[in-house]
Design a binder for these strands. Structure first.
Length: 512
RNA sequence: GCCGUCAUCGUCUAGCCCGGUCUAGGACGCCAGGUUCUCAUCCUGGAAAUCAGGGGUUCGAAUCCCCUUGGCGGUACCA
């Protein structure tokens, strides 16, 4: 078999969709597993839906996820790019480079190519010029629907326009499209890697527009030409393309080209089982980055939506490296998968727990910097040392970094609380006062250099005896001002001796 | 409407190809208990799918066949 070559071809109509990331991942994994090449190309043939900056955003999201390409499109100086390949700067996107021997990898830079091949098809009688205007097209569609027929093009231009008329119209610069002449009564069959045999009658396929009147190709034409020219061996894409595949096969046949293998991935669904859409929450990879999810968690999560390594595999945590080894396209599911954030949160929490102190700090800092309680805190509380202490305590409680500090604001701000909160169960005022004073004595008696969670705990426990709640609850509230918080020893450790004692004094003050 | 495609706990899924080991397993979430005070973590246990429904084939079906239903996708000079 030829060396495996797969591609991920997003359209710059917005940001990288989480479903797009999964398609990219499966392509990447398939390439890695088979020692193949993973290519990124850009399908920017729809000028109406083009979004400024989308190409760059798409690339950087892919880079963030660590889905390195072997060929295709990269950001200059930012994407990890293969040095051995011939590299050129993109004509249409400054800062973007294209590397490889089969470029350009951006469709808007391949327009002449598409035109040439489309005309070749007209020459060989496999396609034809169509001069119908949108109004007429709309009208016949309406009529067909009204009479319960499939709303297909009526082939008016194929049947009625003479070669002379065509020449004339072409010469006078009439707007035209080029349509594929779809054969009648033909069963088109192909073997899909995930779905098995799929077949469709050509009579249900419209005479697809190949070249639009603005001189740009449609997806169908462009992708087939690219995939052939770029030596794509496997087309792995979303299920929404399944019904179009016969059109593509027809195109390959019309050109006399070898047909690649196809694999159609199940769709990602929202909780209402509809195709995942913007209004159901975040669908852009950027949103997840913004909300403090780790790439490892996203990759892990998305990999398991529609694929599973199989019998005997009961683990849930998989690194990219592991996935590269065990991925098998044949084990991709057929049914769509609902995108449920609960499990993502859990996965992300698992990865956060594994982070080193330095990594944790580095990832969390940008999120602290967006919080008011952090911005307004003293410089001492903004120090790396202090933040690392806070994070040591928080790591067990974090689902994502956007939550950082949120539930433990008392580490950064002055605390306010009612005196009754200090009381443990039905202890008397007297006992409460004793309890707090005992804490002052114990904490005050610990040396600064022995100010460690373990040590504080030992001393506190020793003083509390078997009535832990009596000592610990009032202390905890005195230090946090909150009903819920980490343990008093952890609070004291983070806050430091001086601040802890001060807060204890304030608590005592409330008792009058 | 037409064409295509799919169907196991609420969700992600194992099992299905090669029928019996499935009184259908795991994970998330949920509930309960435990783990030195509250929270979180962690641990233990629990509820949760008559395998969409119906009909076959078979000694035996989640697994094979047919039908029905439902979902989803497509039906653009969008990808």
């Amino acid at each position: 078999m030829d060396k495996v070559r797969v591609r991920f071809p997003p359209s710059p109509t917005g940001y990288l969709h989480i479903g797009g990331l999964r398609s990219a991942l499966y392509n990447y994994l398939f390439a890695k597993k088979n020692g193949g090449i993973f290519i990124l190309k850009i399908e920017d043939t729809d000028r109406k839906r083009f979004v400024e900056g989308a190409v760059e955003s798409l690339i950087s999201s892919l880079d963030w996820a660590g889905l390195d390409r072997d060929e295709g499109v990269f950001m200059k100086n930012h994407s990890p790019s293969p040095e051995s390949l011939k590299t050129t700067e993109s004509e249409n996107y400054p800062g973007v480079i294209e590397a490889g021997n089969f470029g350009p990898y951006i469709q808007s830079e391949r327009l002449d190519l598409y035109k040439k091949y489309a005309e070749e098809l007209v020459g060989s009688g496999k396609a034809y010029y169509c001069f119908c205007e949108q109004d007429r097209l709309d009208k016949i569609k309406e009529e067909k629907i009204a009479s319960k027929q499939a709303p297909m093009y009526d082939r008016y231009c194929l049947k009625n326009v003479t070669p002379e008329e065509i020449n004339e119209k072409l010469k006078s610069n009439c707007a035209y499209t080029i349509r594929l002449k779809v054969p009648n009564d033909e069963i088109i069959e192909f073997e899909d890697l995930v779905r098995g045999k799929v077949s469709i009658n050509s009579n249900t396929i419209d005479d697809q527009v190949l070249m639009k009147s603005d001189g740009f190709p449609t997806y169908h034409l462009a992708s087939v030409i690219d995939d052939h020219l770029m030596r794509t061996t496997h087309v792995i894409r979303g299920e929404e393309w399944l019904p179009s595949t016969p059109k593509h096969i027809l195109l390959y046949r019309a050109f006399g080209w070898e047909i690649p293998e196809f694999a159609h991935l199940p769709l990602l669904l929202s909780t209402d089982k509809k195709k995942l859409s913007k209004r159901m929450g975040d669908v852009a990879v950027e949103d997840y980055i913004k909300n403090g999810y780790l790439k490892e968690a996203i990759i892990n999560f998305v990999a398991l939506l529609g694929w599973h390594p199989g019998e005997g595999e009961t683990q849930e945590i998989y690194s990219l490296d592991e996935l590269e080894k065990i991925f098998d396209i044949k084990r991709v599911h057929k049914a769509g998968a609902v995108f449920d954030l609960k499990k993502l949160d859990w996965l992300n929490a698992q990865y956060i727990k594994k982070l080193s102190s330095d990594e944790l700090y580095e990832k969390a800092l940008p999120f602290f910097e967006q919080k008011d309680f952090y911005i307004n805190a003293s410089s001492e509380k903004k120090s790396e040392e202090y933040l690392k202490k806070v994070l040591t305590i928080e790591r067990e409680r974090l689902n994502n970094f956007s939550e950082v500090g949120e539930n433990n604001r008392f580490f950064f701000m002055d605390i306010e609380y009612g005196r009754e909160m200090l009381r443990w169960k039905d202890m008397s005022d007297e006992a409460l006062k004793d309890s707090l004073e005992k804490s002052v004595t114990v904490l005050g008696g610990i040396d600064g250099q022995d100010w460690q969670v373990k040590n504080i705990e030992e001393k506190l426990f020793a003083a509390a005896g078997d009535k832990k709640g009596d000592l610990l609850w009032p202390l905890r509230v005195a230090l946090s001002g909150a009903q819920k918080s980490p343990s008093p020893m952890e609070l004291a450790w983070v806050l430091g001796k001086e601040e802890s004692l001060l807060r204890l004094k304030n608590a005592l003050g409330k008792l009058g």
